[in-house]
Amino acid sequence: MDLFSLSDLALDPCSLSKTVCDRAAGGYVSFEGWVRDHHENRAVDHLEYEAYPALCLNAGTGIVQEAIERYRLRRARAVHRTGTLAIGEIAVWVGVSTDHRQEAFDACEWIIDRIKHELPIWKKEFYPDGTSVWVRCQACANHPVAA
């Protein structure tokens, strides 16, 4: 089982949850990131996610492995979507199992925070008027290149 993977197909949380089952675990926590229909007061029609696969797999596996050691998890796994996603689809799934619940909550939050902030995955929002924007890139692009 890959600790971290990318998928261009819809994620099935029921199937994914079974991959972190462990008889020694007393708790399981998962997080599903969903595609919402708005962002910063603007209606969103759909999203596209683009990833740098080789670095995502290296760094994503490192994040989940570090979480396993840091929070003494029994099992953990994370999957991120790529491609075109409709409103309501699951963009990212994280699941962890551990002996006690607090470590499971903490580890799940730690993993999703690291994934969002570190992995080379980009989100493009498409709006009902036909325009689109790379999220988090637009504000930076309004400034000139530093010498």
């Binding site: 990833a51 902030h117 570190e118 999220v135």
Partner: peptide, 29 residues
């Protein structure tokens, strides 16, 4: 910046044949 599929520093010297990727602000999740 990433060099040969690993995060690198801006001052990393490049070598012949290196694979380089410049990473715009990310937005996963």
């Amino acid at each position: 910046v990433a060099v040969n599929d690993a995060f690198a520093e801006w001052h990393t010297p490049l070598s012949d044949g290196d694979r380089v990727v410049y990473i715009a602000p990310v937005g996963g999740g």
